[in-house]
Design a protein around this nucleic acid. Structure first.
Length: 375
DNA sequence: AATTTCCAACGTCAAGAGGA
DNA sequence: TCCTCTTGACGTTGGAAATT
């Protein structure tokens, strides 16, 4: 039976083990290792690797805390191999089920790396608040961390942050003086078709509320402090206060919201499932990171009067859209973290390999000295 | 140049983890 | 117990590289 361990890990094992004078050949390297082998479960010191044919390989000590002595390394880097067939003899379980069982949950990448980093300071922590380096929105203006950033065709950046804030930045505004922070308020008491944006021009400012309805942006002017007391909605005109680009984006957003609500009204319960994948036009904003178009899928369909019976379906659809959007973002973030995690592990393997080589050479030298003295 | 293959990234679903 | 977050699995897509 072959043991197609992940190439990098495999090579690291071989290097580490065979670099010494003694060959501790308990590893069983495979020349035809597949390029990708998912690591499916971990326990301290043991890594279970899922093979393509539903077999698992337990790899012990692939990533270990730095060894203090090279003498220990051969045992640590032993690879133990066991097939699933040996471990499980239940024929009634399907392959998928088996795999599901094997794929037991493990802590998040951040958790794993942070735990590793406490063991070894060489391992960088994944910081929860860490922003992506390539994010064009500078870090100056807001404490909120962008989770996704889009660029409109006019060149403005729209950053959706955790906490559901939307940050708008004009191109070239490195100090983010032109940045706005919006918060989308999703009140269940809102009128259908309406959305509230809260905007603070500066971090310390009290937020200005924008009431978006019918594709129009309204500023809520308050006469009194009471809730709803003395409020009136004033249409926002482009160019007000010299924040032309900002209101352009606001208007775009209003249009999107309008279309979204139109779609909500048109959707019936049965059509809910197809809403996200059907042939509906998508508003695409260019992501500065990937160059790939990120889609905000909100349908533009002929508006119709809202029937009371469809409100529940609309709510379900809206919740589904929100859930899908959140999960989309989460998946993106998860992949980013995973890549970071793998990179860190690879770095660590390289460091440990170097350490191992150095220690082996050191041992060799000491042996030589000792032998010369003994003679 | 056209076709095929490979790969990375994505969106969605499902299930477990963990907090309120 | 419910809700949200996290992540593996799976299918899709688009671009790059390889092949015809």
């Amino acid at each position: 039976m072959d043991t197609p361990v992940s190439p990098q890990l495999d090579s690291s094992l071989n290097d580490s083990v065979t670099d010494g004078e003694e060959n501790h050949s308990e590893t069983s390297p495979s020349p035809a290792a597949p390029p990708q082998v998912p690591v499916v479960a971990e326990s301290p010191g043991v890594t279970v690797v899922q093979l393509s044919d539903s077999q698992t390989v337990q790899v012990q000590g692939v990533i270990q805390a730095p060894q203090t002595s090279v003498i220990q390394s051969p045992q640590v880097q032993t690879v133990q191999i066991a097939t699933v067939a040996e471990l499980e003899d239940d024929e009634s379980v399907t392959d998928t089920q088996k795999r599901r069982e094997i794929l037991s949950r493990r802590p998040s990448y951040r958790k794993i790396l942070n735990e590793l980093s406490t063991d070894s300071p060489a391992v960088p922590k994944i910081d929860e608040e860490k922003t992506e380096e390539e994010v064009p929105v500078s870090s100056a203006a807001s404490a909120s961390v962008p989770t996704s950033i889009y660029q409109t065709s006019s060149g403005q950046y729209i950053a959706f942050t955790q906490g559901r804030a939307i940050q708008l930045t004009s191109p070239g505004a490195e100090d983010l003086q032109g940045a706005q922070t919006l918060t989308v308020a999703s009140s269940p008491t809102l009128q259908p078709g309406a959305t509230i944006l809260q905007c603070a021009a500066q971090p310390g400012d009290s937020p200005q509320q924008y009431y978006i309805q019918g594709g129009q942006v309204l500023i809520q002017e308050r006469a009194g402090r009471g809730k709803g007391e003395g409020e009136r909605d004033v249409p926002v005109k482009e160019g007000v206060k010299g924040r032309r680009g900002f209101f352009f984006v606001l208007r775009c957003f209003a249009a999107v919201v309008l279309d979204y609500w139109k779609e909500e009204m048109a959707v019936t319960g049965d059509e809910t499932e197809s809403a996200a994948t059907g042939d509906i036009p998508a508003y695409q904003l260019r992501s500065p990171n990937s160059g790939l178009a990120q889609s905000i899928v909100m349908a533009a369909s002929p508006g119709s009067m809202q029937s009371p019976s469809s409100q529940h379906a609309e709510e379900i659809t809206r919740k589904r859209e929100v859930r899908l959007m959140k999960n989309r973002e989460a998946a993106r973030e998860c992949r980013r973290k995973k890549k970071e995690y793998v990179k860190c592990l690879e770095n660590r393997v390289a460091v440990l390999e170097n350490q191992n080589k150095t220690l082996i050479e050191e041992l060799k030298a000491l042996k030589d000295i000792y032998c010369h003295k003994a003679e």
